[in-house]
Amino acid sequence: VPQRAWTVEQLRSEQLPKKDIIKFLQEHGSDSFLAEHKLLGNIKNVAKTANKDHLVTAYNHLFETKRFK
Rank of each mutant, 00 (worst) to 15 (best):
residue 60 N to M: 14
residue 45 N to P: 04
residue 55 L to N: 00
residue 55 L to R: 00
residue 17 P to R: 10
residue 6 W to I: 12
residue 68 F to C: 04
residue 32 S to N: 11
residue 10 Q to P: 02
residue 48 K to G: 11
residue 25 L to W: 00
residue 17 P to T: 08
residue 64 E to G: 05
residue 24 F to M: 04
residue 14 E to K: 12
residue 31 D to F: 13
residue 1 V to K: 05
residue 14 E to T: 11
residue 2 P to A: 03
residue 36 E to L: 10
residue 30 S to Y: 02
residue 25 L to M: 06
residue 64 E to H: 05
residue 49 T to S: 09
residue 22 I to W: 03
residue 6 W to E: 09
residue 31 D to G: 11
residue 42 N to Q: 12
residue 40 L to F: 08
residue 6 W to K: 12
residue 29 G to F: 01
residue 41 G to A: 05
residue 68 F to R: 03
residue 5 A to W: 15
residue 27 E to Q: 11
residue 40 L to N: 08
residue 30 S to Q: 11
residue 68 F to W: 06
residue 20 D to F: 05
residue 57 T to M: 13
residue 61 H to W: 06
residue 23 K to C: 11
residue 5 A to K: 15
residue 38 K to N: 11
residue 51 N to P: 07
residue 28 H to L: 06
residue 58 A to M: 06
residue 33 F to N: 00
residue 22 I to Y: 02
residue 57 T to I: 14
residue 13 S to K: 03
residue 9 E to D: 07
residue 11 L to M: 08
residue 54 H to V: 09
residue 16 L to D: 01
residue 29 G to S: 10
residue 38 K to S: 12
residue 67 R to M: 11
residue 64 E to W: 08
residue 68 F to D: 03
residue 55 L to H: 00
residue 65 T to K: 12
residue 41 G to W: 03
residue 11 L to N: 01
residue 49 T to K: 07
residue 21 I to H: 01
residue 30 S to F: 02
residue 32 S to W: 08
residue 44 K to T: 14
residue 32 S to P: 11
residue 6 W to V: 13
residue 2 P to W: 03
residue 41 G to I: 03
residue 16 L to A: 06
residue 23 K to E: 13
residue 33 F to A: 00
residue 19 K to P: 08
residue 59 Y to L: 03
residue 57 T to L: 11
residue 35 A to R: 09
residue 28 H to A: 11
residue 40 L to C: 14
residue 1 V to M: 09
residue 24 F to Y: 08
residue 43 I to F: 09
residue 5 A to Q: 15
residue 18 K to C: 15
residue 26 Q to E: 02
residue 14 E to D: 13
residue 36 E to P: 02
residue 19 K to R: 10
residue 6 W to S: 12
residue 13 S to D: 10
residue 68 F to V: 04
residue 8 V to T: 13
residue 57 T to A: 10
residue 26 Q to N: 03
residue 57 T to H: 11
residue 50 A to N: 07
residue 57 T to C: 14
residue 58 A to S: 08
residue 21 I to S: 00
residue 15 Q to L: 12
residue 49 T to R: 12
residue 39 L to S: 00
residue 47 A to N: 06
residue 27 E to F: 07
residue 42 N to Y: 13
residue 59 Y to G: 01
residue 7 T to I: 04
residue 46 V to R: 06
residue 4 R to K: 08
residue 47 A to D: 13
residue 32 S to E: 09
residue 50 A to R: 06
residue 53 D to A: 06
residue 10 Q to C: 08
residue 37 H to G: 02
residue 66 K to Y: 11
residue 43 I to M: 09
residue 21 I to L: 05
residue 6 W to Y: 07
residue 20 D to W: 04
residue 60 N to P: 00
residue 9 E to L: 03
residue 14 E to P: 15
residue 7 T to K: 02
residue 2 P to D: 04
residue 33 F to G: 00
residue 14 E to V: 07
residue 35 A to D: 08
residue 43 I to V: 10
residue 58 A to P: 01
residue 22 I to E: 01
residue 18 K to E: 14
residue 47 A to S: 14
residue 14 E to Y: 07
residue 35 A to N: 09
residue 18 K to P: 15
residue 58 A to Y: 04
residue 45 N to R: 13
residue 12 R to N: 12
residue 18 K to G: 11
residue 4 R to Q: 08
residue 8 V to S: 08
residue 31 D to T: 12
residue 69 K to T: 06
residue 48 K to T: 13
residue 3 Q to P: 10
residue 62 L to T: 00
residue 2 P to G: 03
residue 1 V to N: 08
residue 41 G to R: 06
residue 4 R to G: 11
residue 40 L to S: 10
residue 34 L to P: 00
residue 1 V to F: 13
residue 53 D to T: 07
residue 36 E to F: 10
residue 14 E to Q: 11
residue 27 E to C: 10
residue 23 K to Y: 06
residue 8 V to F: 04
residue 33 F to S: 00
residue 1 V to R: 05
residue 22 I to G: 00
residue 58 A to Q: 03
residue 34 L to G: 02
residue 2 P to F: 03
residue 41 G to S: 04
residue 30 S to L: 06
residue 18 K to W: 04
residue 16 L to S: 03
residue 39 L to M: 06
residue 49 T to A: 09
residue 37 H to S: 04
residue 4 R to V: 05
residue 27 E to K: 09
residue 15 Q to Y: 09
residue 26 Q to Y: 04
residue 65 T to V: 06
residue 12 R to K: 13
residue 42 N to W: 10
residue 51 N to S: 12
residue 60 N to Y: 07
residue 23 K to F: 07
residue 50 A to G: 05
